[in-house]
Amino acid sequence: MSAQVLADRLATALAPYLGAFNARVMVKTMAQRSAGVAPEGLKPEHLPALLEALAPTLCTFVGRESAEALLDEIRREVL
């Protein structure tokens, strides 16, 4: 899977929840924050840290349990 495909798949998986605009922004922000790379530089090994960095955002809106469920779903979808 290419890096761009990974970033796109993440944004596509998040868009139904955060909206298309923030899904893209989140992938970009979290790629920088958790892996120190641009979305184009994302690799599958960055995924665990990136999803962990996304957790606080999701927890704020839907609580810890639902956020964990959503992260599991995204992990399955993206990999």
Binding site: A15, L18, G19, A20, N22, A23, F61
Partner: peptide
């Protein structure tokens, strides 16, 4: 507006 188009919105 930030969450427009998403369930959380």
């Amino acid at each position: 507006l930030a969450l427009r188009g998403g369930l959380f919105g």
